[in-house]
Amino acid sequence: MTVYLPIAELSVNIFIILGMGAAVGFLSGMFGVGGGFLITPLLIFYNIPPIVAVATGANQVVASSMSGALSHFRRGTLDVKLGTVLLFGGLAGATVGIWIFALLRRVGQLDLVISLLYVVLLGTVGTLMLLESIRAMRRSATNQPVSLRRPGQHNWVHRLPLKMRFKKSKIYLSVIPVIGLGFCIGILTSVMGVGGGFIMVPAMIYLLRIPTNVVVGTSLFQIIFVTAYTTVVQATTNYSVDIVLAFILMVAGVIGAQYGVRVGQKLRGEQLRALLALLVLAVGARLAVDLVVTPDDVYSVISEGVYR
């Protein structure tokens, strides 16, 4: 059964899109990630124009982060104050990101930059995760005690001015690194169509030393608003949000996520992380191949859409 995507302007098999959404939703539930960094490359592989894939990916992340953030809110593992400070940086970053996106589109380098960013990001994150999980597996094999760095330790981040007290997280922290982190992730949201949780969560834990229990909920909270903002701005500046595509993806995604969570609870953490790392590396490698292999046609033609 095919369905016509009005913005991407092509017909696709609805079951492939449903399968894609369910698979990514399953993985995101299993690993506790948003899934935007997988959905956007998958859509590009399926010949959806990168500009549509990025904007639609951001829209889909609104749904998955919404359902995640709500359950964290009920459990009380969400720091609204910290999330709001992050959000200020995130919205500013997303605005800059949209500007970069439009500029790249104008000079015809958008597709290339999206692919390159994904290759670099997925390659780095995948490699780091794989190394970390292998170390953890070795440790548990030799029965060594897990030596986590003490959360009370301070680094340069904690000497910055403009400190603020975050009661829920039980920390006293400068707002500068928080806004800065939100800003960087905001740029990634609008240029790559990701929520950015897979970078934000480690950065909050290791860099800002925020207690682990509130990190995921808080990052999801701010991701909702940054991706929502990005969706609206993409829709008004680039006309590239495909609501049909996004809706199929999000319905399949939220259902897939529920089953992913159940499976994830039965598997062991380090094995789970190693699996995700391999998957991330595979997607990155596939994108890298496309950049290097000689294209079928070196020429391309696009209509400016000015007189539409």
Partner: peptide, 15 residues
């Protein structure tokens, strides 16, 4: 754009 966001938020909340 606003409707797209609303639809996503609704889907997430329903789930």
């Amino acid at each position: 754009g606003a409707f797209s966001v609303f639809l996503a938020a609704l889907t997430g909340w329903l789930a």
